[in-house]
Amino acid sequence: MTMQTMLANPLASIVLMHADDLLMLGHVQSDWTGLAPILEEDIAASSMAQDDLSHALVLYQYLAEEFDLDPDAIAFDRDPADYRCCNLTTVPDEFDWAVSMCKRWLLSTYTKLGLDRLALVDEGDLGDRCARLRDESAIHVAHLGAWMIRLGTGSTESNERMQAALNLLAEEAGMMFEPPDLGFESDEGFCCGRGEMFDEWATLVGATLSEAGLQASFTLPDQAARGGRRGEHAGHFSEQHAEMTEVRRAEPATAW
């Protein structure tokens, strides 16, 4: 089978969009190693970035086995337009901890719900893999949610900075729910319902925001709105993708 076979498979495209989100998020979050505001969180955030990369690998390995491909090739060798990550993952945080924190929290909450649904899929060992990843994802959501509340309620400055970060990211967040092109003409077809998943996500993040004294308005974009899930990536994706694949392109067979 070929990469194109995988890309044309509806279930694979759902798996791929989560894997790509995690790969990109883990990659960019690794930049914070050594730079996070306090030592304890520096270690924790780095550890969770490793988790994200590892979770992406677990999903790529599933796809590799299903479609007889190399997981590294899936991760690094696709055309940029074949990546299914949403644009939120690569929005630059410009080393603003508030932006990094909000972005990871919004995405982790979404990923957890996506894995909840994939864990129910009876297709090879995909369900088992996602059930395992879901538990780890829940730890991320709890950790990041705890920080959202503390930074939202910590001081006037921390509240303002978190609110500014949310204002920056809120519009892009809805596009996490953009369906990939294939086989998802209706909301219900989008892995147990796009609208239902959005409502569940909005309820969860709304509860934490309320406790944190923060406000954000999220809307489910129209089906026609196109973004990263359908390969129409922002410029910041191209920059991150180019950097992430630099070694792979220079030395395709390199290994450590």
């Binding site: 306090i38 030592l39 304890e40 969180e41 270690i43 924790a44 550890s47 969770m48 730890i139 709890a142 950790h143 705890a146 920080w147 503390r150």
Partner: peptide, 20 residues
Amino acid sequence: YVDAPDQELALQFAREHYGL
């Protein structure tokens, strides 16, 4: 040891520092 503002974050940090 970990430094943390409260027990919830102390356990969160401890998980990442020592649990792994």
